[in-house]
Design a protein around this nucleic acid. Structure first.
Lengths: 227, 227
DNA sequence: CGGCATCCTCTTTGATACTG
DNA sequence: CAGTATCAAAGAGGATGCCG
């Protein structure tokens, strides 16, 4: 990216991460940790291969991404964030929180990946019993299932399935998100086609209060959806 | 901007504000409030006039910017952020904080505007006597001077001069920033050519502790500068 | 002067195909 | 798996002109 040439920390930051796709590559590496090239490509549907290759090299020379020649059984290159790259977490959190307002419209042909729930889960879910037993919630909203693991008050999301999930949610990403955001109760989400299997009380343990405060994160489109 | 087509709040947000210049336009409107077209152009050195025009219209139709036909004595169009636009403040704050690491290198030909100090001032300055009298610090680091006003524990930066500033800082933006960030003491900054006029104790009232914690916001380049 | 619109050139992106 | 190569399309940058 051509530099803005401004002595301003915002402009300087955008000189480094303001290019198209760049922050989404950081998102992938933040959520998933070390990734193969093809993992990144799968998590960034629509990116051209040459562009991904370019961006990775730019991020490397900016010191935000590090390349590891992983030994067997991986036996291929893994891309990691450096400390400086990982420090973009608050940036992506702020952007993702702001962008939540755009998540309640139909979203017709949009691609979806289960691990993209990591940020919304960390925004919205709060363990009301942090000293209770660890909890795992399996999400089946896409080809690749994901698991939200809550233990000791912290939330972590990964791709894959859980051995013995407390709850399994199967349905549309939109419905799951509305449930997490407090815009829908579990019963309302179920009415809209979300399948909830397992321990409903475990789910209630982490869902936010259905106060207006939670609904404030969403736009009036939410209320239309709800109506 | 072409949509990423991903059902992810980060991607959706970047669909709206991910274009080149867009977040810097928001920065200008956040710091300065209602702006004329030419104010924006002056605060975004290098932007092509047609691009500014395009971006403003995109931001308008996205509902982030509102146009006001200001009556005399302004007698021209003023651009304002809407509530949704102003909610990008945490996003710009996070980006600006992360970008601080790039602010300590020479920055040879970079443009500078005094009001760009608004974010750094809010990051770094803390009033240790919030019940004390209001404080104003005038900055003369560019063509257009700026004033940081601290009252009741809150910090506000605007363009212009103060009637009776408690302190006037004249010198390089870099040196002022290093002082604010706690990477330099007032004495060290003065040694490096920063002119400090007025009440030094008023300045010390808001400067951060020179702990390593403050210096952590800067890179090793800072330490090179300091040496 | 303020707020654009036009024209032109150059760079970046996207889509697809191909390679070690 | 991890990229290159190629080419068309879109976007950015710069100059200039227009119109109240």
């Amino acid at each position: 990216m051509r530099s803005y040439g401004e002595y301003c920390s915002i402009a300087k930051a955008l000189d480094v991460v303001g290019d198209r796709w760049t922050l989404l590559i950081i998102r992938e590496l933040l959520i998933r940790g070390g990734c193969r090239y093809t993992d990144l490509k799968d998590g960034l549907p629509g990116i051209a291969s040459n562009l991904l290759s370019d961006r990775i090299r730019e991020l490397e020379s900016a010191g935000l991404v590090r390349r590891e020649n992983a030994p067997p059984p991986v036996a291929t290159t893994l891309f990691h964030l450096t400390a400086a790259g990982a420090e973009l977490l608050p940036v992506l959190a702020a952007i993702g929180r702001w962008g939540t307002r755009y998540m309640m419209d139909p979203a017709d042909g949009d691609e979806f990946r289960g691990h993209w729930f990591a940020f919304p889960a960390s925004f919205f879910l709060r363990d009301r019993d942090p000293d209770g037993p660890p909890l795992s919630i399996e999400l089946r909203a896409a080809d690749s299932p994901a698991v939200i693991e809550i233990a000791g008050g912290t939330t972590h999301t990964r791709l894959g399935t859980a051995v013995a999930p407390d709850v399994v949610l199967s349905g549309e990403p939109r419905t799951i998100l509305a449930l997490f955001a407090g815009a829908l109760s579990a019963a309302q989400a179920a009415d809209l086609g979300l399948r909830i299997d397992g321990d409903l009380s475990a789910l209630e343990r982490v869902l936010p209060a259905r106060a207006d405060a939670a609904a404030d994160d969403l736009t009036s489109a939410t209320r239309t959806t709800r109506a």
